[in-house]
Design a protein around this nucleic acid. Sequence first.
DNA 1: CGGCAACTAA
Length: 827
Amino acid sequence: MIRSSCCRKLSTQCKTNAWTRFPQHGFSTQSGLFPEEHMIHTSPQISDFNSHAYASMLQNCIINGESTTGKSLHCHILKRGGCLDVFAYNVLLNMYVKSDLLSDAHKVFDEMPERNTVSFVTLIQGCAMALRFVEGIELFFRLHREGHELNPFVFTTILKVLVSMEWAELGWGVHACIQKLGHGSDAFVGTALIDAYSACGLVDPAREAFNEIIHKDMVSWTGMVTCYAENGFFEEALELFSRMRMVELKPNNFTLVSVFKALLGVGAVDVGRSIHACALKMRYEMDPYVGAALLDLYTKTEDIEDARRVFEEIPKDDVIPWSFMIARCSQSDRSEEAVELFCQMWQTLVMPNQFTFASVLQACATMAGLDLGKQIHCHVLKVGLDSNVFVSNALMDVYAKCGKMENSVELFMESTNRNDVTWNTLIVGYVQLGDGDKALNLFLDMLGDQVKATEVTYSSVLRACAGLAALEPGTQIHSLTIKTIYDRDIPVANALIDMYAKCGSIKEARLVFNMMSKRDLVSWNAMISGYSMHGLGVEALRIFENMQKTGIRADKLTFVGVLSACSNTGLLDKGQAYFNSMVYDHGIDPCIEHYTCMVGLLGRLGHLDRAVNLIEEMPFEPTVMVWRALLGACVTHKDVELGRISALRVLEMEPQDEATYVLLSNMYATARRWDNVASVRKSMKKKGVKKEPGLSWTENQGTVHYFTVGDASHPDMRLIYGMLEWLNMKTKKAGYVPNCDAILLDVDDDEKSRLLWVHSERLALAFGLIRTPFGSPIRIMKNLRICMDCHAAIKCVSKVVQREIVIRDINRFHHFQNGTCSCGDYW
DNA sequence: CGGCAACTAA
């Protein structure tokens, strides 16, 4: 009687707690799986405290996922002071484990009057589900210590835990134990072993485990096929699959997934199609995993139509097929399609996840679709995924690629989750927009924030250095890459070659190139165009010939380098031959850059008529670069009329291009057509052409020293002007005659000569001569084309002072040495 | 009363 009243009391308690708060999980009369409330009091089994009845009711709770009901049953048992048998306790334990209530499970486990192997295995499962692997392992040891039976269930369970922990050492011990007990022949244990070895990439031991299984079932075969497929043994996977069919085991959906993966690995799409047909016959086409594997197969082999067909067929109530298609479209340059799919998905009410957003935003970034990006940004906020690091990185990338760095920075400032990609996105954004200074500052902040720089970081900041022609920072970053071993990364090494070449250290560039153990197309292209921009055409062509021997196929950019090397060096026959070879041997359609090189090459050697013919013949509208190339040739070869036409074409496209006015004026002056010189000056004034201030700079001991024309602001100015006086005297003696045509101002020749000697590049040169040790090269950068007279003067200086002088102007590098320049006086 | 295998990926 006492028991009964307790029970009544408890049942009302439970009713208020469970029934009112969770009506949907309460005692369900409709399901018929649980007795109605009054039945608890009247049921004879329960009043007799029948463990078996509780066990079966708890089992029903597990099947139906009714943890609340299970809990109240537990309450009943406790209140009645009842003592279940070990079987019923195990079911109770399992009920808590399956309801993700590990601490309750632990409590039950501790309170059980006796435990058996099943109790341990059940709790270990719970620990594994809650990712508390160490606890699981401890229970395994305790099970062993307390002398419970080590049956196959124990091993399948513990092997799974070990795989999750990636604890191989203990795995071997467990395998030894399995063999000692002879459980290796058990299909379940054997398959768990296969999976464990597969996860470690140990295919041979997995195969041994497979061979030991006496009665191999479907799962064992599939496990082994999967092991091969996962570890890149695609042929073996397919071979085992066909053997499996010979023993007349029908593959299931699991098998098919691995087979499709293996087929993708060997690129056998056609076989894939026939197995796809089998899958249809076996009605597995609606399995989401099979669907995803098929999408994987068809999208990776560029067979988008088949992929689309699969996609149309399979169920789309899950985010994965959508994400899959969107991701693959974004990655394979079908951004519009990716966006379209995203819109469709949005309408089906399937919730996009972080992957979906990251992928569709990637498509937006590729398309530079700002409005679209903003709309998706709104969706991201709505869904609350804006704090996800992948999504916010992708958003930052969209804004950066659309040139909206301020928005990108804003997101960066707000972000609470940052990783290396976050920093890289911003750095790459600045580099792409040509803001190298900001990129480098951000790199320093990144290092200060203890974020590890990656290959992407290094190659980007090196690109920034290349753009800024900043040799010293570039060299420092080079040492950082060596320290972190990232210098062995091909893109980083390629960026180093480019950086050294663009900073004037072509020898260092070659050194990096030589040190590379593996080179790709970009490495060769970087080296070829590096030599080309330094006027070392013969070296460039030698590199190109070596490249041919490696079997790496040349592309458009390779030939831009090769042809500009010919152009910069004046190798007409070779240039023509390479141009033909490009078209006929390499099957590359010439683009406007190739034609520009050829126009420059013909023009440089005085074949102005042929250059004009080529312009007329080429299948493109000539760009400003083409006309500039022709203008340069006209200046050199004193063809005033053609030069005038070329200059007008340039000015039509870029009316504010001061350099062109200067060239035009110089040309007229050389031809002594003074009235034309005056009209050029007039039209410059009329059009309000702003002279871009000429700026030259040189690095010295970590500081960049800038000079403008006639600059007197540098602290070493007295020394610099002293040096210039001395150079003036020495070069005059060595035969240098000032070319006053380079000065457009209407002043007398003495004054013109004086003005020439305060050109920014000469100030920088004088500073370099004062501040650098004898014998070391002097590197100067200029933001405009080097002036003709400076070019002549510096050639002379290089002989007088016996120093190598490297000047990078807006077009190329000039290596002055012993009275000559690597450009051969043509640039 | 307990155990083994498969999907996207910035």
